[in-house]
């Protein structure tokens, strides 16, 4: 069976999804401030590699683990509401790109599975 990565449309789809995802994130006052001093080019490159890996595409991500990568944000108040916003926007973008509801649910489940790591719990 094709991987979620292939079902979503491969590299081109991930590139489009990441761009739309950050457009939503930067427009959302719940989370936008966290990106104030972030180099968005690099952030999006990292996110492309990360999502490609978790969707079951070529595994080119060997960056930080979720706990380490978000620890500095937890100290700035990162909480469940922010993770919810991420899952909401990721789902919204995938819906916009025509992903099946089951695939969107799978992505949300993957994101929820790392929630405790992201929030240092």
């Amino acid at each position: 069976m094709a991987s979620l990565y292939e079902r979503l449309g491969g590299e081109a789809a991930v590139n489009v999804a990441v761009e739309r995802f950050y457009r939503r994130m930067l427009s959302d006052e719940r989370v936008a401030d966290y990106f104030d001093s972030v180099d968005m080019d690099r952030q999006m490159a990292k996110q492309r590699a990360f999502l490609t890996m978790v969707f079951g595409g070529p595994a080119n991500y060997s960056g930080k683990d979720m706990r380490t990568a978000h620890a500095h944000l937890v100290s700035r108040g990162l909480n469940d509401g922010h993770v919810d916003a991420v899952i909401e926007h990721l789902g919204g973008v995938l819906k916009e790109l025509g992903a099946a509801d089951a695939d969107i649910a799978e992505v949300a489940a993957i994101a929820n599975s790392v929630r405790d790591h992201v929030l240092s719990r």
Partner: peptide, 8 residues
Amino acid sequence: ACRAGACQ
């Protein structure tokens, strides 16, 4: 830096 294709 990252050696993972992310930092460029």
